[in-house]
Structures are given as structure tokens and as C-alpha cells.
Amino acid sequence: EEAIQNFKALLSDMVRSSDVSWSDTRRTLRKDHRWESGSLLEREEKEKLFNEHIEALTK
């Protein structure tokens, strides 16, 4: 649960536009030290959280 919250915070800070792809964003996020705290999450979970974040940005 904490890993999810940390990853959501990372997305909020780093992803402000809804027209970015997961693969491009992932490359950028990996450069942030907080990426490692999400290592407990599966890749699919990270992508799902990313997609939810993008959906929220479009509303």
C-alpha cells in the first residue's frame, strides 16, 4: 500500500500531461530516486496506476 502511494505521488509530480505514453514516461520516471520505492510493485500494477493517473488528468 505504501509503495502504491509513493508511486502515485511520483506520477503526480512528474506526469502533468495526458498525451504521454507509458514507455516514454517510464524512462523519465526511472531517473527519479523514488522509482526504486516502487520496486515492490509489479510492472503491470505500475502501468495500471499510470493509466488511472492519465484518466484523471483528462477529466
Rank of each mutant, 00 (worst) to 15 (best):
F7R: 03
R26M: 14
S18L: 06
L57E: 13
K48W: 03
R27L: 10
S23T: 09
W35T: 06
R27T: 07
T25V: 15
R16D: 09
T58M: 08
D32A: 00
L10Q: 04
N51P: 04
E44Y: 06
R27G: 11
H53I: 00
H53P: 06
F7L: 00
I4E: 07
A56I: 09
H53R: 03
T25W: 07
L41E: 03
R34Q: 04
L11T: 03
S18M: 05
R30L: 12
W35P: 07
L57K: 04
A9L: 10
I54G: 04
R43G: 15
S39H: 11
S39R: 13
R43D: 15
N6W: 00
E52Y: 04
K8V: 04
W22S: 04
R43P: 15
K46V: 05
S37T: 13
T25H: 01
V15R: 00
S23G: 07
W22D: 03
E1I: 11
R30C: 15
E44V: 09
K48D: 10
F7W: 03
F50G: 04
R43V: 15
V20K: 08
L29F: 02
S39A: 14
S21N: 12
R16V: 11
E55L: 10
E1A: 03
S18H: 13
N6T: 12
N6V: 07
K31F: 08
F50V: 01
M14K: 13
S18N: 08
N51D: 11
K59T: 12
E55D: 10
W35R: 07
W35F: 05
F7M: 01
G38V: 14
R26V: 15
D19Y: 03
E1Y: 00
E2L: 09
R34N: 07
K8R: 12
T25R: 00
D24P: 01
E2Y: 01
T28G: 07
S17Y: 02
L11C: 01
N51V: 04
E44N: 11
L41K: 04
S39L: 11
G38F: 15
D24N: 08
L40I: 12
E42K: 15
A3F: 06
N51L: 08
E47D: 02
T28K: 14
M14C: 13
E44H: 15
L29I: 06
L49R: 01
E1C: 11
D24Y: 02
D13I: 04
R43F: 13
G38E: 11
R26D: 12
S23D: 14
E52P: 01
D13Q: 08
H33S: 13
D19N: 09
L29W: 01
D13K: 07
A56N: 13
L11Y: 02
R27M: 11
N51Q: 12
S23M: 08
H33Q: 15
N51F: 08
K8Y: 01
R30T: 10
S21E: 08
S39Q: 13
E55T: 12
S12Y: 05
M14F: 08
E42Q: 14
L11E: 06
W35A: 05
T58G: 14
Q5G: 11
D13C: 02
R34I: 02
L40D: 13
T25I: 15
E47C: 00
F50E: 06
H33C: 00
L41Q: 05
A56L: 11
E42P: 15
K48R: 14
S37Q: 14
A3T: 06
M14N: 10
R27Q: 14
E47W: 06
L29P: 02
I54F: 00
A9P: 02
K48S: 08
G38D: 14
A9S: 13
K48V: 08
E42S: 15
S23K: 12
I54T: 08
R16F: 06
E52I: 02
E47R: 09
A9D: 09
T28M: 15
A56S: 13
E2F: 03
L40H: 12
N51M: 10
K46Y: 14
E52S: 06
S18V: 13
S37M: 12
E1N: 00
E2N: 03
T25M: 12
L29M: 10
H53Y: 01
T58R: 14
R34F: 00
R30N: 10
L29N: 01
F7P: 06
A9R: 10
D32Q: 07
R27P: 10
A56Q: 13
D32E: 02
L49D: 03
W22K: 07
S39M: 12
M14S: 10
A56W: 10
S12K: 15
N51H: 09
S12M: 11
N6S: 13
D24S: 08
K31Y: 06
K46F: 13
R34H: 01
A9I: 06
E44I: 06
T25P: 00
N6H: 06
E55Q: 13
I54V: 13
D24Q: 09
E2V: 08
E2W: 03
E55S: 13
